[in-house]
């Protein structure tokens, strides 16, 4: 059986597909959207995360690291990831870290890798509970990057009567979508045209949407993050509406900019690209919503 790489599971989500769902977040994304709230999902192998607020500044990691990645000077713990060989020694030695629980540790790798069958066993108890009122959503990263192994997982789900949803940018080769198509009940497609989009990406996206819509347009929900300065333009809205109308897609979810993603950029030693970006007001959101509803599209704001 193939293996899947993932970085998180959410057990009780009511905003990621129909009903109440388990969400599995797969690793790896070919895009680098500046508003991304999980930059730690980008690399298919784990980046070393460092959460300063959990660090005791004991210096154990400084002593153990073979490549001098860690340095403590003037009470500050600096991490130079360029020399990191991902050996995990610093995580093992750190008194505030647990190799299995990066989200409560000071140092951690986010990557978890499991065989599809094992992974299903982990998900199963909660999927059993949510069977009648939701199901499993695969998010990421972009799940299409692991489409072959993912198809195996989704196949097990469909065999067990679990409703499946995949959230993707749909900007990869349609082969990946064809891998999954027989086992997916619902698609959440990220559609957010920006000025900097590559033409070939956009073309690929349209091809893929056509493919899915030909299958069943009612199984598609468009998701659009509203990011000030990037996606909140009338042109973008018009393009989305056109794509939806052309393909007979009837519903959209608009996702206001999430200001709480800075944390992860910091933990990876990256600069948060959207620093200082203001939250959208309630009025602005309602106004954007009306753009879509007046085009006859079922619209929901998902906060």
């Amino acid at each position: 059986m193939s293996k899947l790489k993932y970085f998180d599971i959410s057990w009780f989500s009511s905003v990621d597909g129909p009903g109440t769902r388990v969400v599995l977040y797969l690793l790896g994304c070919h895009l680098r959207c500046p508003w991304c709230h999980s930059p730690h999902s980008w690399e298919i192998s784990s980046p070393l995360l460092f959460f300063e607020n959990r660090c005791q500044k004991c210096g154990s990691c400084v002593d153990i690291c073979p490549n001098g990645v860690h340095k403590i000077s003037n009470g500050a713990h600096l991490v130079d990831r360029s020399h990191c060989i991902r050996c995990g020694a610093c995580i093992e030695i750190c008194p505030s870290s647990d190799i299995n629980k990066w989200n409560t540790s000071a140092l951690g790798f986010v990557c978890k890798e499991l065989e599809v069958g094992e992974l299903y066993q982990i998900l199963k108890p909660q999927l059993d509970l949510l069977k009648d009122i939701g199901g499993l959503t695969i998010s990421g990263g972009d799940p299409l990057l692991q489409s072959e192994a993912l198809a195996e997982l989704l196949k097990i789900c469909s065999m067990n009567g679990i409703h499946t949803t995949v959230e993707t940018s749909a900007t990869l080769n349609k082969k990946h979508i064809e891998d999954l198509l027989p086992f997916v009940d619902h698609w959440l497609i990220g559609l957010r045209p920006t000025k900097t989009d590559k033409v070939e990406d956009w073309k690929q996206l349209l091809t893929n949407i056509e493919l899915l819509a030909a299958h069943n347009p009612n199984q598609i929900t468009i998701r659009t993050p509203i990011i000030p300065g990037y996606t909140n333009t009338q042109i973008a809205y018009d393009m989305i509406i056109e794509v939806m109308h052309t393909n007979g897609i009837k519903s959209i979810e608009i996702l206001p900019y999430n200001p709480y993603s800075e944390n992860y950029y910091k933990a990876m030693g990256l600069k948060f690209p959207l620093e200082g970006t203001q939250l959208l007001s309630e009025e602005e959101l309602i106004q954007i919503k009306s753009v879509f509803t007046s085009a006859g599209i079922h619209t929901e704001i998902v906060a």
Binding site: W11, F12, K101, I122, Q126, D128, L129, L130
Partner: peptide, 10 residues
């Protein structure tokens, strides 16, 4: 518990 209600009940 780092899992879900489903895991407790199972």
């Amino acid at each position: 518990t780092s899992f879900s209600i489903g895991h407790l009940l199972a």
